[in-house]
Every structure is written in C-alpha cells, then in structure tokens.
Amino acid sequence: MAAFTLDDLAAVIAQRARSDAAVSYTKSLLDAGPPRAAKKFGEEAVELVIAAVETERRHVVAEAADVLYHLLVVLQSRGVALDEVLGELARRSAQSGHEEKAARRRADASVGSPAT
C-alpha cells in the first residue's frame, strides 16, 4: 500500500470542494468562507498544543492529523496551492533557521525605515 501524502489529502479536499455541503463537512467549511476555516484551524492548533504537553502519543497523532487537514482547508479556501507552501519551505531550507529569521527581521526593519 502506498503512503498517504499531503498531496493526496489536498486532492481529497479539492474534490470535496466540488461536492454538496449537505454531505461534505469540507464543503460546508469552505462555503462558510476563509474566516470560518481559519477559526477551525486555530481551534485544532490549540488542541494539538494541549495534546503535545500531555503524555499520550496517540492523542498527539490524532490532533496533528486534524491540524494538517484544517490547514489544507484554509489553503483551499484562499486559493493557495500546497506546492506554493512547499516551495516557500524549500526556499527557506536553503539556509539555517537562524539566518532565515535574521533576514526576515532585516527585511521587516527596512520596510519601516524612511527612504534616504
């Protein structure tokens, strides 16, 4: 059996986006708009944080699955392809995390600087 991937999950979500909200939870979330999808993602993220400080591994696994699903629903609701996010991660991984964060801080600082 082939491994289930995030690409597979994104494809399932895209397929369900074309279904009927009466039978698809995914479609009902998408029909409610990005704010609803984002709120649900936030709720699931908090549940994962809580699970992560507990000792039951299976709870962490279940909550992480919920987070990944709801993240992909948020992306779908905003028309952002998973490949775009993966491309951003690939770009960032070309340097260390410390270097990447420092570069973002420098870019953020220059945005607020007056032009000379």
Rank of each mutant, 00 (worst) to 15 (best):
T5I: 12
T5C: 11
T5H: 08
D7S: 06
D7Q: 04
D8M: 10
D8E: 12
L9N: 02
A11E: 13
V12C: 03
V12W: 02
A14P: 09
S19G: 02
A22E: 15
A22M: 15
A22F: 14
V23G: 09
Y25W: 10
K27W: 10
S28G: 03
S28C: 08
L29S: 04
L29A: 03
L30C: 06
D31Q: 08
A32L: 04
A32N: 05
G33F: 01
P34N: 11
A37Q: 10
K40G: 08
G42V: 08
G42F: 04
E44F: 02
A45D: 07
V46G: 04
L48W: 08
V49L: 10
V49N: 03
A51M: 02
A52M: 15
V53P: 00
E56D: 05
E56G: 01
R57D: 00
R57T: 04
H59Q: 13
H59V: 14
V60W: 10
V61Q: 15
E63R: 09
E63C: 07
A64R: 12
D66K: 07
L68V: 09
L72C: 09
V73H: 05
V74A: 05
L75T: 03
S77E: 03
L82W: 13
D83M: 04
D83N: 04
E88P: 00
R92M: 15
A94H: 01
G97K: 06
G97E: 08
E99P: 01
E100S: 05
A102T: 12
A102H: 07
R105D: 01
R106Y: 08
A107Y: 04
A107L: 11
A109N: 02
A109P: 01
A109G: 02
S110K: 13
S110L: 15
T116D: 07
